[in-house]
Simulated assay, not measured.
Amino acid sequence: MMKKIILLNVIIFCILSCHNRSVDSLDNQKYTEAKNNFNRKLVDHFPKAVTSYPFQTINSKNISKSDVCFMLYEYEKDLKTIDSVVRSLEKKSLAKYSSNDSCLLIVNRFETLKTYENRENVIISDSTKINQDCFKNLYPIPSFIEYEFANGKNGIYLENNFDIYVLEAKNGNWFKEFKMMPNPQMPKNWKNGYSKGIAVSRERKTLIYWSVIW
Score class of each variant (00 low, 15 high):
F135Y: 11
V50E: 05
T112N: 10
S125R: 15
I130D: 10
I156K: 12
N121H: 14
T51Y: 12
Y73Q: 10
E76R: 07
E33V: 13
V23S: 05
Q29C: 04
C69I: 02
K80V: 10
K136R: 13
N137P: 05
L105G: 12
I58C: 04
L79M: 06
S125W: 12
P140E: 03
Q29I: 04
P142W: 05
N59Y: 00
T32S: 15
S88M: 14
L158D: 00
R40Y: 08
T32R: 14
V23L: 05
S25F: 05
L26W: 04
T81G: 04
Y147L: 02
E74A: 10
A150Y: 11
I141R: 00
R119Q: 12
I124M: 07
I63W: 02
C69T: 03
L72I: 06
C103Y: 07
S125A: 07
G152W: 08
Y53M: 05
S64V: 07
N100M: 07
I124K: 12
K114L: 05
I145E: 14
T51L: 11
F55W: 04
L89W: 03
K48A: 15
V166S: 09
I145Y: 06
A49Y: 13
S64M: 09
C69A: 13
G155L: 05
T128L: 04
K77Q: 13
G155E: 14
K129S: 12
S22P: 13
V85E: 10
N151Q: 09
V86H: 08
R87G: 14
K77C: 08
K61E: 00
K129G: 03
Q132F: 02
N39W: 00
L89I: 01
Q56W: 06
S22Q: 12
E117W: 01
N28C: 09
T57Q: 07
Y147S: 12
K41Y: 10
N161D: 15
S25H: 06
N121V: 08
N118W: 02
E146Y: 02
D44A: 07
Y139Q: 05
V85W: 07
S64I: 07
N108R: 07
S93Q: 09
R40M: 07
E33R: 08
V23H: 02
N28I: 08
N137I: 00
N118A: 11
N36F: 10
Y53A: 00
Y75L: 03
C134K: 04
E159A: 08
K136C: 09
V166Y: 01
N151S: 15
N131C: 11
Y75D: 07
K129F: 11
N151W: 04
E146L: 00
S66P: 01
E159K: 13
